[in-house]
Simulated assay, not measured.
Amino acid sequence: MTIRVVVADDQELVRAGFAMILDAQPDIEVVAEVGDGAAAVEAVRALRPDVVLLDIRMPGVDGIEAARRVGGEAKVLMLTTFDVDEYVFEALKAGASGFLLKDVRRDDLVHAVRVVAAGEALLAPSVTRKLIARFTSPATPLAPAVRLPALTTREQETLVLIARGLTNAEIAEAMVVTEHTVKTHVSNVLAKLGLRDRVQAVIAAYESGLAVPGAGSS
Rank of each mutant, 00 (worst) to 15 (best):
R4Q: 11
V6H: 05
V7I: 11
D9I: 10
D10H: 02
Q11F: 15
Q11C: 10
E12S: 14
V14I: 15
A16G: 09
G17C: 01
A19F: 06
L22S: 07
D23V: 00
I28N: 07
I28K: 01
E29A: 07
V30G: 00
V31T: 15
A32D: 14
A32K: 01
D36P: 03
A39T: 04
A40T: 06
V41E: 09
A43I: 13
A43V: 01
A46L: 14
L47T: 03
L47G: 01
L47I: 06
P49V: 08
P49W: 15
D50F: 12
D50C: 04
V51P: 03
V52M: 08
L53N: 01
L54H: 05
G60Y: 05
G60K: 04
G63N: 05
I64P: 00
E65F: 04
A67I: 10
R69H: 12
V70Y: 09
G72I: 08
G72A: 11
E73G: 03
V76F: 15
L77E: 04
L77A: 02
D83Y: 09
D85N: 10
Y87D: 04
Y87H: 12
V88Y: 06
F89D: 02
F89R: 06
E90T: 10
A91H: 00
L92M: 09
K93Q: 09
A94Y: 09
A94H: 08
G95L: 13
A96W: 14
K102M: 09
D103T: 12
D103I: 10
V104G: 01
R106Y: 15
D108G: 01
L109H: 00
V110W: 04
H111D: 10
R114M: 12
R114E: 09
V115A: 00
V116K: 12
A118T: 03
A121R: 15
A121Y: 07
P125G: 03
K130A: 10
I132T: 10
A133W: 04
R134D: 04
S137Y: 02
P138C: 06
P141N: 13
P141Q: 10
P141M: 09
L142D: 05
P144C: 06
A150N: 07
L151Y: 10
E155M: 05
E157A: 12
V160S: 04
G165T: 03
L166W: 08
T167H: 14
N168F: 05
A172L: 03
A172Q: 02
A172S: 11
E173Q: 14
V177Y: 07
H180T: 14
V182I: 12
K183Q: 14
H185S: 06
S187M: 00
S187T: 15
N188M: 02
L190N: 08
L193W: 13
L193Q: 12
L195V: 09
R196E: 01
R198G: 08
A201V: 13
V202A: 13
A204S: 12
A205Y: 11
Y206F: 15
L210F: 13
A211P: 11
G214P: 12
A215T: 00
S217H: 15
S217P: 10
S218G: 07
S218D: 09
